[in-house]
Computed example of a mutant assay.
Amino acid sequence: MKKIILLIAISLSNLITAQNNSKSLLWKISGNGLSEPSYIYGTIHISCDATLPQKVKTALDKTNQLCLELDMDDPNMQTEMMSQVMMKDGITMKKLASEEDYKTVDAFITSNLGFSAEMINTVKPFMISAMLYPKMLDCEMQSVETELMKIASDQKEEVIGLETVTFQLDVFDQVPYQVQMNELIKTAKSDLKRDKAEINEMLSVYKSEDIEAIINFSKKSDNVITSKFGEIMLDNRNRNWIAKIEAIAKNKPTFFGVGAAHLGGEMGIINLLSKAGYKVEPIVK
């Protein structure tokens, strides 16, 4: 279960116009009262190769703490998450699907997770989808966040988070259960073929380090949660993060690691930090 929780947890201006022509997942944040620069890096939660580039390791050496979306080494994270895995108001997966679709989902879950849908009938469908992430890769799943945490641990640096587990799960709860279930049904009917194809394309786009291509990819995703709920999953959270990033960076030089889809676009972290008066530069090498 701890592994499942980690998978779920490791479950979005004119100043930026010229800068975003540079393809980089790593950006330096300076100016506007910062005594020392901080860095922000676009991560990917599931990958076949989470090896960190040298430029990332160098930036980690120059900073004094690691800040991820969640405080991944919080000992209470698992308990907090487990308390919120169930749907509310007596809603079940069986109630959200036709009899035929539920049978399809049941057979699919049994085949891929080793237990029947009935055993997890009240679990939020997006969490079940997260349990399936390792099945979407033709390799042993790796995580960039895990690699970042290893270095932070070696350097005996603190790991903090921009959000709590409760807040992040509340964000997902804004996506209707029916929408979540519809996506799980689509996954089951394609027997992961749709999801595998999208993951492979996403990994290719991520490797390009083109943050504008990454945000555009999320907008055209066949997964409705990704493509149609961008304001909830990305934009609103980005706005909330800016003040937190400012306060954290002013306290001490920090390496921020957030999902790469949060960086690009008009409402992306890079643009919002630039509009707030910071110098944000791509680190290409």
Rank of each mutant, 00 (worst) to 15 (best):
I151Q: 12
Q65T: 11
N271K: 04
V56R: 05
I283A: 05
K57V: 14
K193E: 12
E209S: 11
V56W: 05
Y41G: 11
S204I: 05
L70N: 02
S227L: 08
P53A: 05
K252A: 10
A97W: 00
T17E: 15
I16D: 08
G33K: 10
I269Q: 01
M87A: 00
F115V: 10
A9M: 12
K285L: 01
K196N: 06
E183C: 05
D89S: 13
G265H: 10
I29E: 03
I109R: 02
Q142C: 07
A130S: 15
A130R: 01
T79Q: 14
E212P: 03
K28F: 00
N251D: 15
I120S: 09
Q180I: 15
I109H: 01
V123S: 06
M77W: 03
K285M: 02
P282S: 04
F256R: 06
Q78L: 08
M233V: 15
I44M: 09
S22H: 11
L6K: 00
P253L: 09
V284Y: 05
I245H: 10
V205P: 06
K2T: 12
K23A: 09
S221F: 13
D106F: 10
Y41L: 13
K28T: 00
G161P: 06
W27N: 02
E266H: 01
E36W: 03
D235I: 12
S111H: 14
F217I: 02
F126Q: 10
N216S: 14
I151K: 12
V280K: 02
M87E: 00
I185N: 00
Q174G: 13
Q54H: 07
S98K: 00
A9C: 10
G161D: 04
E157S: 14
A276D: 07
M119I: 13
S11A: 13
S218L: 12
P125C: 07
S116G: 11
L70Q: 01
I283V: 15
G265T: 11
I46R: 01
A197C: 00
E201Q: 14
E201P: 06
P134C: 12
M202K: 07
V56A: 09
C139I: 06
A249P: 09
S11L: 07
A107Y: 05
N64R: 14
K250D: 06
M77N: 04
S111D: 15
E198M: 14
E163V: 01
K88D: 15
T63P: 07
K94F: 08
T254W: 05
G161K: 08
T104E: 12
Q54P: 03
K28M: 04
G31P: 07
G264A: 08
D195F: 04
T187R: 11
M81L: 15
T63M: 10
T110L: 09
D61P: 06
E147C: 09
L162D: 07
I10M: 11
K23R: 15
F255W: 03
C139L: 08
T79V: 12
